[in-house]
Design a protein around this nucleic acid. Structure first.
Length: 947
RNA sequence: GCCGGAGUGGCGGAAUUGGUAGACGCGCAUGGUUUAGGACCAUGUCUUUAAUAAGGUGUGGGUUCGAGUCCCUCCCCCGGCACCA
């Protein structure tokens, strides 16, 4: 009977699709199926009993009450199409949704419309969720989260506390970016071309004491893992550029008559003999010593003071503007060239940055354009040490490669081939050593705003006076030792097994901000007291004074010191919204657990490891050892265990089982999101995951196995924005065409990873296709069982090719080409007089990711069991993919002479092959007049004529 | 300057490991249907040519029987970094 059913056919009448037939009513279909999916909890994922865990995630949005725009639908329905496809492939797909509700974006919106962020958040949330329901995504609504929920930000604060306890969060005074419009400080990553990432205002530099997360300690590992990531190339390139590693050498120069050393950083140690002077940044500590007279200088002190003042008055932007004429002043000091003992002058100039490298350089004007310009202006000597291959005049600078000359001992070596030899020589002579520097800066997370999680720290003046801090408490002892060890490795290339190679610990201690030295009086809020709730206040507007609105609320900030019990003060800044989003993907798996931030083992796997520069093998080994050591008789530091165990120590065995099962969803299988977060969210999430691994809470260090950067919707060649007045509102479109048509169109307008131009005329075309689909499957006659199978070989091949092509496209998220194949297949089907059930079923399945409501309706009309979205994706029959024609290389005596196309049948006949070859233009000259002795045929590959 | 990505009709964009360039859609043209409009249906649509035929994937070269695809030169566009030594 099955066979009979399987060959059910229907005849379609294309020209009779008008009003007398069943009308396509997208609204009714949408409502009908959405209600049913919801009632049946069709998309709720059973995290514990999943057989093939598959975590699909789209970057969660920040909600504005204006609601979804077409870009949201574009990206979220794309992620949904992929999730639906993966579900039909038999995976237990988890597709959660939440809101990045805290932060400046949301607060500014509330400010704009004159509402309190607390109330506005509720409205925005309701509006966003309503619209997200309406687009028909297969979200698991039972696991939504909002970052402004105390149940969520309790753990954001917990995370901060962990970072602090491991010495990765510290308060320090620094020149920071301040946005005068947003009235808060910004992280380096939030400044783009000197402007605020959010509002475009030019940022100012202010000297402020702020909380930083020491992401720089992870620079090397963040960089090192990049090549192995299955991420879009452009994101990987952006992150590499942002981390910005330069490899070179740190070389020590001595100041004449003083024993004071100056360290410079260079990527071109091969040009050391060409150094004719040194340049130090105006911020260099030596400048201060000269001005104060601590170091005797022959220079004009007043002139130096004037120059420093002048530099300080320049804005950061002025200073960085390219093409600006270089300025500087002679310091009055000389140094000794470490190799030639020549006397070199030291200059102060602002083209050298105090924040990069050591704040001092050796100037090699012959081979550096900037040094050259400076040397020309101030008449400083120029010495060529690389032979120019282009025969340039001595008067010009060239940074190129070539043979080293005028350099005793190195002459004849070549750059860059012999860079290693030179570095080795420098280290051997004790003049310098290998060093890497990074562009990456520490992550500034304080925000002088209201709408965020309060930073969970307490400052006790009493303890501060006595120099006490959390790091002096008994609880912290092991971490302090750990930190010393870490500090010694500030030098980039230090090997873990060779602590004696610490180049200059003294220098390091003067530049490294050592938490215990300036964290006096600071204590994290005890974990059992979390969350530090954000109070409801009326005066939430940012003050712009560098102080948070919460600082006006003693009822919030007054507290007691957890250490000595005296009166103390809470931190009143809140944390950056990017801290909220740096770990949310973990929380989705535990939204129903209040005692745990995410599924994590209740055993402390290992003590905290230094994040930077540890060869991976050694790191893994250390962790394996600790795993074994973490039995009940463990010798692991008690305080560390109690940190990790504060929420999970007393878990029962069944609970452990649950945790382990949920952990199978991590790391995120595929993450989809915008490329604009390449150095923001994506970098922070990687950092946080690495930290959580090192601290023993996770057993992987890269959060996203695969990252897919989607494109943006473009309108008239421009990014959509309200100011340009080219925003497309989705609601009228959905009203007119239905969500299925809109979804299909958005998938079709271009490759998902590139920007697509939105043209509303294109929607009409898609709507035509959707209506034709409807007609094909509904307005037909003679839907009667047939005993004979109407699918012949040709149709079977067509079907199989389509399934194969669409499957391949779906894997790569090439939705536009998948849809093109489906439309081609439609055109083929429309030419047939009958359609078999097999064809119809496979076709509806392939449509389902794009038009979920319509496909579900058609599936039901085909009499198939609910639901198409949980049905098994058709696999293609590879036997049916044999092509009619094949191309085969033709050899003559083993040499390829031509490629010919043969019909499969022709290949069975040697005479036919020979005849075809002889008739071919190209083969004529090889075979004319020759007798073929033998034809060797390697099926599918080559035909060799032996003559 | 350095690092990524890309350059194909009037438009968005297709082309497995090199194998009939322009799939699919939009737009346009002609015809049908319709009271009209819309919608729908059919046919056509890279260039030159009446047709056969020839040319054609930013530029110039190369490898190959065969190149949008591989190699080299240059040009242009998009994104990231940048007085970063």
């Amino acid at each position: 009977m099955n066979k009979q059913k399987n060959t059910q056919v229907k005849e379609k009448i294309l020209n009779q699709v008008q009003d007398d037939k069943i009308k396509y009513d997208p609204k009714a279909i949408t409502l009908k199926w959405q209600a049913k999916w919801e009632a049946d909890k069709l998309y709720q994922t059973d995290l514990e009993n999943a057989k093939k865990p598959y975590y699909t995630l789209m970057m969660f949005p920040y909600p504005s009450a204006e609601g979804l725009h077409i870009g949201h639908i574009y990206t979220f329905s794309g992620a949904d199409a992929f999730a639906r496809y993966k579900r039909m492939q038999g995976n237990d797909v988890f597709l959660p949704i939440g809101l990045d509700a805290f932060g400046i974006h949301s607060e500014n919106y509330a400010l704009k419309i004159g509402s309190n962020p607390v109330e506005q958040a509720k409205k925005s949330e309701a509006n966003f969720y309503r619209q997200f329901h309406a687009i028909g995504n297969s979200f698991d609504w039972s696991r939504k989260l909002e970052t402004n929920d105390p149940n969520y930000y309790k753990w954001t604060q917990w995370l901060f506390v962990q970072l602090f306890k491991h010495g990765l969060a510290e308060r320090k005074k620094a020149k920071v970016n301040f946005c005068p419009s947003c009235k808060t400080v910004l992280s380096d990553e939030q400044v783009i071309d000197g402007k605020c990432e959010r509002c475009g205002t030019v940022v100012e530099k202010r000297d402020l004491e702020q909380w930083f997360l020491k992401i720089t300690e992870y620079a090397q590992r963040l960089l090192e893992n990049i090549p192995d990531l299955n991420w879009s190339e452009k994101i990987k390139a952006s992150q590499s550029n942002w981390i910005g590693k330069s490899e070179g050498a740190e070389i020590e120069f001595l100041i004449f008559n003083f024993q004071f050393p100056i360290k410079i950083f260079t990527t071109r140690p091969d040009t050391l003999y060409g150094a004719t002077f040194l340049v130090i940044a105006p911020e260099h500590q030596l400048v201060n010593k000269i001005v104060k007279g601590e170091i005797k200088s022959t220079g004009n002190i007043d002139e130096i003071k004037d120059y420093i003042k002048q530099v300080q008055n320049n804005t950061e932007q002025d200073r960085l503007t390219e093409g600006k004429e270089k300025t500087g002043v002679f310091s009055g000091l000389y140094t000794k060239h470490p190799l030639t003992n020549e006397q070199l002058p030291i200059w102060i100039a602002d083209y050298v940055l105090g924040t990069y490298g050591t704040g001092a350089i050796m100037a090699v004007p012959a081979h550096d354009a900037r040094d050259f310009e400076f040397a020309k202006k101030y008449n400083l000597p120029i010495k060529t040490v690389i032979k120019s291959e282009a025969n340039l005049s001595e008067e010009k600078t060239h940074a190129g490669n070539g043979e080293i000359i005028n350099s005793d001992g190195w002459n004849g070596l070549r750059y860059p081939q012999d860079k290693e030899k030179i570095l080795a020589d420098l280290e051997k002579q004790g003049i310098g050593k290998r060093r890497s520097t990074y562009h990456l800066r520490d992550w500034l997370i304080s925000r002088q705003r209201y709408w965020g999680p309060p930073i969970p720290m307490i400052y006790c003046e009493n303890c501060a006076k006595e120099g006490k801090s959390w790091f002096a408490s008994a609880e912290s002892k092991p971490t302090i030792d750990d930190r010393k060890w870490r500090m010694g490795k500030e030098d980039g290339n230090l090997k873990i097994d060779n602590p004696s190679s610490i180049f200059d610990l003294q220098h390091l201690s003067s530049t490294v901000h050592h938490p215990s030295s300036n964290m006096a009086g600071w204590y994290p809020v005890p974990e059992e007291q979390l969350p530090v709730l954000l109070p409801y206040i009326e005066d939430f507007k940012p003050l712009g004074t560098g102080i948070s609105p919460l600082a006006n609320h003693p009822e919030f900030y007054e507290t007691v010191c957890p250490e000595c019990g005296s009166k103390a003060r809470r931190e009143t800044d809140v944390s950056d919204t990017f801290l909220d989003s740096s770990w949310y993907f973990l929380r989705y798996l535990a939204t129903d657990w209040e005692d745990m931030p995410f599924p994590t083992s209740n055993v402390m796997l290992n003590s905290f490891q230094h994040p930077n520069e540890i060869p991976k093998k050694i790191l893994n080994q250390v962790q394996d050892d600790k795993k074994i050591a973490a039995s009940p008789s463990s010798s692991a530091p008690i305080s560390l265990r109690s940190q990790a165990g504060s929420f999970a120590d007393a878990q029962s065995a069944p609970r452990n089982d649950e945790i382990e099962k949920r952990k199978r969803f991590l790391p995120v299988t595929i993450y989809i999101g915008g490329a604009e977060h390449a150095v923001l969210h994506l970098l922070y999430a990687r950092f946080m995951t690495m930290f959580l691994k090192d601290a023993g809470y996770l057993d992987f260090e890269e959060p996203f196995s695969r990252f897919f950067a989607h494109g943006l919707i473009i309108k008239d060649g421009q990014k959509m924005s309200k100011s340009k007045g080219n925003v497309i509102l989705p609601d009228p479109l959905i009203e007119k065409f239905g969500i299925d048509t809109v979804r299909l169109y958005l998938r079709f307008l271009g490759p998902f990873d590139q920007s697509g131009d939105f043209r509303d005329t294109g929607v009409e075309g898609m709507h035509r296709f959707v209506k034709r689909l409807w007609s094909l499957f509904t307005n037909t006659k003679n839907f009667e069982p047939r005993t004979e199978n109407i699918i012949d070989d040709k149709r079977m091949t067509m079907l199989n090719q389509t399934i194969k092509g669409v499957t391949e496209d779906m894997e790569e998220l090439h939705f536009n080409t998948a849809i093109a194949k489906l439309m081609t297949y439609y055109n083929f089907l429309a030419e047939q007089t009958e359609i078999s059930l097999d064809e119809a079923k496979a076709y509806v399945q392939m449509l389902a990711p794009f038009v979920p409501h319509l496909a579900e309706e058609l599936w039901e009309r085909l009499g198939q069991p609910y639901s198409v979205h949980t049905s098994e994706w058709q696999t293609f029959d590879s036997k049916m993919l044999v092509e009619d024609e094949v191309t085969i290389a033709i050899q003559v005596n083993g040499k390829v002479r031509a490629d010919l196309r043969f019909k499969n049948n022709d290949l069975r006949n040697e005479k036919m092959i020979e005849e075809m070859a002889r008739n071919n233009e190209k083969m004529k000259k090889y075979l004319e007049g020759q007798t073929v002795k033998k034809i060797i045929y390697v099926p599918g590959k080559v035909i060799n004529f032996v003559i």
